[in-house]
Amino acid sequence: MNDQSDENRVRLQKILANAGVASRRVCEQYIVEGRVRVNGVVVTELGSRINPETDQVDVDGTAIQLDTSKRYVVLNKPTGVVSSMKDDQGRPDLRRFTADWPERLYNVGRLDAETSGLLVLTNDGELAHVLAHPSFGVTKVYIAKVSGRVLPQTIAQLTKGIELEDGPIAADKARLLDASGDTSLVELTLHSGRNRIVRRMMAAVGHPVEELVRRQFGPLHLGTLPAGRARELTTVERGALLTLARQADTPPGDPTQEQL
C-alpha cells in the first residue's frame, strides 16, 4: 500500500460520524456489533481505516453517503413548469429551484408541464441512471383525477394490461381512491418510463386525466412538501437511494446520458 493511499485512509468510526450516521461513540458500538460493512465485508475492528473516496460502506444494509460532493434534492414541481434546466421556448424551467445549491443539478427523468409532483434533482449521474431507466424497475406512484366514474372492473383492466399504440402496458398496482360525482381519483403505481404513460393509459380506458401528481419515486415520498419548494434528502432518504443504486446491476453505457 503506497503512502498516498495511506494518507487518504480515515478511521471508520470517524467517517460514519461525519456522514451523520450517529455520534462517534454510537458508531463504535455499531462496528463492534458487526452492523457495519466495508465493500460488502463486515468490519468489527475499531482501528479500521478506509478510503472514503473509493470504499463503500453500509450500516444494517443501508448505504452511507461518503462522497460529500454529491447532492440529492427533491422538488415538488408545480404545473406549468417544464422538466428542463433551460427551455428553448422560454417557458418556466427548473433553474429557479436550483439556485440555492452551488452544484450543477440535473433532473432525473421528466414530468409533463401540466403534471405536478415529485422530481429528483442531483449531480450523481450513476444514481440518476438507475432511477430513470425502466430496466431497474424503480416504481413511481401517481394520483390522477380523471373524468367520469371509474368502475372496479376498469381498475382490474389497468393491472391486467391494456394495448397502446406503442405496445401493451400494465400498472404494477391500481387503486380507486374516490368515485363520487363526475370525476374519480385513481392511484397508479408504474415502473414504466414511457412518455405520458398515465395519461395515455387512463384515456385508453375511457377516463381522460384532468389533474395528475406524482406522489412517490422509488423510496422517496412527496409528503407535505408544498408545490414549488425543494429540499435536500434526509440521511435516511439518501441511504435508501444509494442502497437502491448499489443493488442495481448497471448495464454498459454512459450513465449520465440517460434522461438527464
Rank of each mutant, 00 (worst) to 15 (best):
54 T>R: 13
55 D>Q: 09
55 D>N: 11
56 Q>P: 00
57 V>T: 04
57 V>P: 07
58 D>P: 06
59 V>P: 10
60 D>Y: 01
60 D>P: 05
62 T>R: 15
63 A>S: 13
63 A>N: 02
64 I>R: 06
64 I>L: 05
65 Q>A: 15
66 L>V: 08
67 D>C: 05
67 D>T: 09
69 S>V: 01
69 S>H: 06
71 R>Y: 03
71 R>A: 13
76 N>F: 00
76 N>M: 05
76 N>K: 05
77 K>D: 01
78 P>N: 05
78 P>V: 04
80 G>Y: 01
80 G>K: 03
80 G>E: 04
80 G>V: 01
80 G>A: 02
80 G>F: 01
81 V>T: 02
82 V>K: 06
83 S>G: 12
83 S>T: 15
86 K>A: 15
89 Q>I: 00
90 G>A: 05
90 G>W: 00
92 P>C: 01
93 D>P: 05
95 R>V: 14
97 F>Q: 10
98 T>H: 07
98 T>G: 03
99 A>F: 06
100 D>P: 02
100 D>M: 06
102 P>W: 01
103 E>Y: 02
103 E>K: 06
104 R>M: 03
105 L>C: 00
105 L>S: 02
106 Y>G: 07
107 N>W: 00
107 N>A: 15
108 V>L: 02
108 V>Y: 06
109 G>C: 06
110 R>P: 05
111 L>W: 08
112 D>Q: 08
113 A>G: 02
114 E>A: 15
115 T>I: 06
115 T>H: 10
115 T>P: 05
116 S>D: 13
120 V>R: 13
120 V>M: 15
121 L>F: 12
121 L>I: 12
121 L>P: 13
122 T>I: 00
123 N>W: 07
124 D>Y: 11
125 G>C: 08
125 G>R: 08
125 G>Y: 10
127 L>S: 09
128 A>G: 15
128 A>P: 04
128 A>C: 14
129 H>D: 05
130 V>C: 08
130 V>A: 12
131 L>D: 07
132 A>D: 04
132 A>Q: 04
132 A>R: 01
133 H>M: 13
133 H>R: 13
133 H>P: 03
133 H>F: 03
134 P>F: 14
135 S>P: 01
138 V>Q: 12
140 K>P: 07
140 K>N: 09
141 V>S: 04
141 V>T: 15
144 A>R: 08
146 V>R: 12
146 V>H: 08
146 V>S: 09
149 R>A: 13
152 P>R: 08
153 Q>W: 09
153 Q>L: 01
154 T>K: 14
154 T>A: 12
156 A>I: 00
157 Q>P: 00
161 G>N: 12
161 G>W: 09
161 G>F: 03
163 E>M: 14
163 E>Y: 03
164 L>Q: 07
164 L>M: 09
164 L>K: 09
167 G>D: 09
167 G>W: 11
167 G>F: 11
168 P>T: 03
168 P>K: 13
168 P>C: 08
168 P>D: 10
169 I>M: 10
169 I>L: 01
170 A>E: 10
170 A>M: 04
171 A>K: 11
171 A>Q: 11
171 A>G: 11
176 L>C: 07
178 D>M: 08
179 A>E: 08
182 D>K: 13
